[in-house]
């Protein structure tokens, strides 16, 4: 469990990082919080020639409101999102709530938002939320900056459209969602979810005007359930409707069987987490004090 040798470069600016990355190409890797990359180095699943440590880059560690939008700097740690003040969280409370599901405490003090998005684990809370809430990812490379909608960023397991010399700078959640909720099932607190669901609803007098339903951990990327979203849109929210939507979610996926759960179990869980998330989303929005309980999805 010891990494192979590599060169280590600690950079102070984004430009400096991009310079190293362009020079070395895909044999270089960005190092942020290290909470995913360091284990990969240990297992030698990653064997970069050079690591470019961006943790000392100034100006990438922030959360800012910009009208309805919430902008999160790439180096913002999970714990900062978890404890963001209420003026920031207003309409984006689901982010603070979701943070509690990301690993356990010492992982959250160090792991970064940008690192999670770049790592592109299909069970990652941030990747799932980014897709569900129409987030826009700003990347910077030698040619300058570009905006990538989260829905187009993820290409497959641990794979994004980012070029090897591009850095994620910021993730922007463009609009508020008053009725949004996340639900997960993991065997132990802090584990990656077997199945996770994020829902976001736009409601008017109990009728759903717009809906997002995204599952994590069931496919190569966070999976948006368009058919289920269509079935919700225009309908009046009710428990039977939510059950129907849960069944649609379950039918829409073809999960794998592995040592953690077989496909049928995952399909069943998908229905459960979607139904619960919908229920909580219409219950006045996610309540700040309902927190994950060990070993179960609340």
């Amino acid at each position: 469990m010891k990494p192979a040798r590599f060169e280590y470069r600690r950079v102070a600016t984004v430009d400096e990082a991009i310079e190293h990355l362009s020079e070395v190409g895909d044999e270089a890797k960005v190092l942020a919080g290290g909470q995913s990359l360091v284990p990969l180095l240990g297992f030698r699943l990653a064997r970069p020639r050079m690591l470019v440590d961006i943790t000392r880059v100034e100006g990438l560690r922030y959360m800012r409101r910009d009208g309805e939008a919430l902008r999160i700097g790439a180096l913002t740690v999970h714990r900062a999102v978890e404890t963001m003040r209420s003026s920031l969280a207003d309409g984006h409370r689901i982010l603070a709530e979701a943070a509690r599901w990301v690993g356990h405490y010492p992982i959250r003090t160090r792991g970064t938002f940008g690192g999670s998005i770049a790592h592109a684990d299909p069970a990652s809370e941030w990747c799932m939320l980014a897709v569900a809430l129409d987030a826009v990812v700003t990347a910077q490379g030698p040619g300058g900056k570009r905006d990538i909608p989260a829905g187009e960023l993820f290409q497959g397991f641990f794979t994004t459209v980012l070029a090897p010399d591009e850095l994620i700078i910021e993730v922007r959640f463009p609009r508020v969602w008053e009725h949004a909720a996340i639900e997960e099932f993991a065997r132990r607190k802090g584990d990656f979810a077997l199945v996770a669901a994020t829902v976001a609803l736009d409601l008017e007098d109990g009728r759903c005007r717009d809906a997002r339903i995204v599952l994590g951990g069931v496919d190569e990327v966070p999976l948006r359930l368009l058919e289920a979203e269509r079935a919700l849109t225009g309908a009046v929210c009710s428990t039977p409707l939510f059950e129907e939507i849960g069944d649609l979610a379950s039918a829409a996926i073809s999960p794998v069987s592995d040592i953690h759960a077989d496909a049928e179990h995952r399909r069943e869980l998908a229905a459960v987490v979607v139904r619960r998330a919908l229920g909580r989303a219409v219950g006045g929005g996610p309540d700040g004090d309902s927190r994950p309980v060990e070993g179960s999805s609340r």
Binding site: L31, R79, T109
Partner: peptide
């Protein structure tokens, strides 16, 4: 576990250079 600049971290996941 150790404290790194006041924050609880897993020191196995901090590279030496990051503690400079």
């Amino acid at each position: 576990s150790v404290f790194l600049d006041g924050k609880l971290v897993c020191s196995c996941l901090v590279l030496a250079g990051q503690a400079e």
